[in-house]
Design a protein around this nucleic acid. Structure first.
Lengths: 103, 103
DNA sequence: TAACCTTATAAGAATATGCTTATATTTAAA
DNA sequence: TTTAAATATAAGCATATTCTTATAAGGTTA
């Protein structure tokens, strides 16, 4: 399995859960602390913390500690990179498929 | 939960498994029958069939029956659409994040 | 330093996922 | 018209995921 395949899998797993995608959608509006995300989503604090860990390990988000709070943000560059790579793969496929094998 | 959120979740689940992404990668090279995918991936026939069902319900692939064979193909337009929508969301976020709340 | 916030981690329970084997269904071929 | 081939579906098992509750670990503040 290629590196990119592994990245895609993690990325897919990251956004492939309703709870996690909801966190991501909220982070789209700007950085947030864990407890803010708890309030917004209604999920428990440990649940949020665990999902953020998953998202971080997929490079979808990153965090920064300020005092006792931890601010989470969307990793824009990384996500755009993944999406671009995927789009390119699909575009190439478009070409392949034009010369279809058989009917 | 929005419609788009639901689509993203399905899309993520679709590509968020190593076996399924492997199927997708192979379909990038052109349409394939179930049994071809079985040979290529080494997965069992029912496993492939089940994964294809998941991918189809996420609109990642579609199929066409010819004789007793069923050809599966990548749903290029749909995938490009999803990726474009996601990219746009991230781009907008970029703007939001520039005016960060606090330091 | 003691009490308090904020977050992370651990452990466990409930549910979902990804396979397996067995079987049904549809179409082609002998 | 039986036999074979291709695919889908069903049922069940093993593992993974997603929560929960309880607790720990860092920082703050009184």
């Amino acid at each position: 399995m290629t590196d990119f395949c592994n990245e895609i899998e993690k990325f897919g797993k990251g956004i492939g859960s309703a709870s996690r995608y909801r966190l991501v959608e909220n982070l789209f509006k700007g950085e947030k602390t864990v407890s803010e995300l708890v309030k917004i989503t209604g999920l428990s604090q440990p649940a949020v913390s665990q999902h953020l860990k998953t998202l971080k390990s997929a490079n979808i988000v990153f965090n920064e500690k300020r005092g006792q709070e931890i601010f989470y943000s969307i990793n824009i560059k990384y996500i755009l990179g993944i999406l671009k790579n995927l789009s390119e793969k699909v575009q190439k496929q478009k070409f392949h498929n034009n010369k279809s094998r058989r009917r």
